[in-house]
Design a protein around this nucleic acid. Structure first.
Lengths: 293, 293
DNA sequence: AATTATATGATTGAACTGCGTCATTTATAT
DNA sequence: ATATAAATGACGCAGTTCAATCATATAATT
């Protein structure tokens, strides 16, 4: 009865593809299509849902990508696994009743996707990112607010003086930031307007969390956003040694608010590997200190 | 228990739109959104399915094929031809360098689609409608601004105090409004927050144009928006006689800013007929008077 | 004003879905 | 080769969904 691993993975990949072409399929049909029992099909769907590839419904399943924002889809695949894992960790920082800011960037967008699948309710969510607002507005129990401002062509992002003024009227419990580069000095971005908004938000946030995947390590950009002393924590999949090589690791000791968390993702892992259950006990090092709550 | 026919139709239209934006909704949630029993919701869904607008699934429903693509939607929507003709007329009111506000509502959305196909550049566009902003942001030469505010789950629309405050910081050359009903008294909408935003915009607009298709004629809604004296003009496909029958036609003489324009669309027209050249000479009665420019 | 038509919500029984448990078989690891 | 781990299908229970029916209130019609 047991079947080789590659067969299982192949079947699940086919399943995801099939669901992306036709939007919806009911379980009975999927069973006939793949020649497996309902139990196995449910297991496959449960697995794909955990990886945020499909959405299960009563009696079937739907493909799970946002075809409304094609530009996002292209960039999203870069370091997708790492970003998803980081997003899962980031969710642990949230508690009901919090007011949270979501920055622009695909990493933060992945976080909102994770939030949709495992909602923490109630939550007040603020963002200047149109796809984020659109996605979160579907989730029950989330109070979603959008900053006002100029819509940047091709980026679906709100910026400008109006956006900064809107941001200044909030007080955030947690703010999730992204950046295009991180060095020993801190975080860097290419757009001055982006940095202006980030600073306006950071000024009114108690916990300031940076989400950056390993590809950002050592890179700079024209605009300096903030030094490490201005952040509460860093979530990244970069290894400790690589962080040390650019002189960041030693600075992390200065994070007295939140322990910097380094995910140990090995690149050699197969794409459909199970994150598994063993990370349940890692919750401790991601808890906001009581001083912030 | 029984409810007027236009309420039923309006609810089903909203239901179809809601399902177009979000791919899938489960029945229980739809009941909560619309405040009806499951029995009624199933009846609505059965009706929409018969018209090939949605696909029912076990426990929910999804939007039928991509009605988000304009070509599809225009064929499906009954009043689409009228709305597109109205949109073409409305475009004639715009001149380069203007600052324009776009209200919510499908009629105004059709206007933005028309604007994308025949852009007037440059233009500063302001809206609280996410699909509108998304659409217009792709057009070169348009400076698109979004109001800040709370994102409504059902409508992808920005409302609330923040939206009104954002709106008050603008000065519009032209504002396009929609409404759910028009009577001799004026325009009506069902949501108080919608009306609040409309009034904030109208207070800062030089030309206030209402876009309403004939199905809105004679209907009322809980909230009163504005009387005819507060408007600069009306764009509609309703016939003069039907406007007279509810006492609106005589009031149009009071529009000293813009002559009310009544489109003479005959329902017997073939669906794919071209609006044609004969309305080129109608441009005169759609020009903003110099006093406003 | 009287009559007809219909939109609605509650109820009921039948059918279905989903999940956990279990035994079985077979791949993978040592 | 042996032991372990994993994938699969069958079964039953609990919860949910669905269609049909019915009474009722109210819109539409005359």
């Amino acid at each position: 009865m047991r079947v080789p691993r590659h067969v299982v993975d192949a079947r699940r990949r086919q399943l995801a593809e099939l669901l992306q072409r036709h939007r919806y399929f009911e379980i009975a049909e999927l069973c006939k299509e793949f020649g497996v029992s309902e139990a196995t099909m449910r297991r496959d769907l449960a697995n794909l849902e955990k990886n945020h590839l499909v959405t299960r419904t009563y009696g079937g399943a739907l493909a799970d990508f946002n075809l409304r924002f094609p530009s996002f889809r292209q960039r999203r695949n870069i370091a997708a696994d790492a970003k998803r894992a980081m997003a899962d960790k980031a969710l642990r920082l949230l508690r009901p009743e919090m007011t949270v800011f979501f920055d622009n960037g695909t990493t933060v967008f992945t976080l909102t996707e994770a939030l949709r699948h495992s909602p923490i309710r109630p939550l007040t969510c603020v963002t200047g990112n149109l796809p984020v607002a659109d996605l979160l507005s579907e989730v029950e129990g989330l109070d979603v607010h959008l900053l006002g401002g100029q819509v940047l062509r091709r980026q679906s992002v709100l910026l400008g003086d109006a956006a900064c003024r809107s941001a200044e009227q909030w007080t955030f419990d947690v703010a999730f930031f992204s950046a295009e580069g991180m060095t020993r000095e801190g975080l860097w971005n290419s757009d001055a307007a982006v940095v202006a908004l980030q600073r306006a938000v950071a000024a009114n946030s108690r916990a300031k969390i940076a989400l950056l995947d390993a590809t950002k390590l050592g890179r700079t950009a024209p605009q300096f956003f903030t030094g490490w002393e201005g952040l509460s924590g860093l979530l990244t999949d970069a290894s400790v040694t690589s962080l040390e090589s650019v002189g960041i690791a030693s600075l992390m000791a200065d994070f007295d608010h939140i322990t910097a968390h380094v995910l140990s993702l090995t690149a050699s892992k197969p794409p459909h590997s199970e994150p598994g259950e063993e990370d349940e006990d890692e919750r401790s090092d991601l808890t906001l200190p009581t001083s912030l709550l």
